[in-house]
Computed example of a mutant assay.
Amino acid sequence: MQLTHQDFDGLRVVRVDETRIDAACAIQFKDTMRALSDSGPARIILDMGRVEFLDSSGLGAVVAALKAIRHGQSLDLAALHPTVMRVFHLTRMDTVFTIHPDVTTAIEGIANAS
């Protein structure tokens, strides 16, 4: 599972550099996200623009990443592919996560909220 990140002022953007988050990589995704959030700033955006497929294990891994963040941190999602967005909608996880149409909008939204 390849994740890359870039830090800005008080913000970390984590990009999923894979087309799938599924059972084969869910544990590695959770572990990597935990490490990136433990060492990260208060606000984290997960850029899922390259992810075209998300199964129940992948969804569980994203939820686990949310549960693993420290008190005072936030985790927003950005750039969900329509099929991935459908999974979030069908499971009502779109009511749990703040989901932005793209990373730029997410960064601007967070900057305006500060």
Score class of each variant (00 low, 15 high):
P41H: 12
P41E: 11
A42K: 13
A42Q: 14
A42D: 14
R43Y: 05
R43I: 03
I45R: 03
L46C: 11
L46K: 06
D47L: 04
G49F: 04
G49R: 04
R50A: 14
R50Y: 06
R50F: 07
V51E: 05
V51R: 05
V51T: 13
E52K: 14
E52R: 14
E52N: 12
E52V: 12
L54F: 01
L54V: 00
D55L: 05
D55Y: 04
S56F: 02
S57G: 09
S57R: 06
S57E: 06
G58I: 05
G58N: 08
L59F: 03
G60E: 04
V63A: 08
A64L: 07
A65Y: 01
L66N: 11
L66E: 01
L66G: 04
K67C: 02
A68V: 03
A68I: 04
I69D: 00
S74Y: 03
S74K: 09
L75A: 08
A78V: 10
A78G: 11
A79V: 04
L80Y: 07
H81M: 01
P82G: 05
T83H: 14
T83C: 07
M85D: 14
V87K: 02
V87L: 03
F88L: 13
H89L: 06
L90K: 02
R92N: 12
R92F: 02
M93R: 02
D94G: 13
T95K: 15
V96Q: 08
T98C: 05
P101D: 13
D102W: 09
T104V: 10
T105K: 11
A106F: 07
A106N: 09
I107P: 01
I107H: 02
I107V: 15
I107L: 09
E108M: 12
E108A: 15
E108V: 13
I110S: 00
I110M: 10
I110P: 00
A111Y: 08
A111E: 14
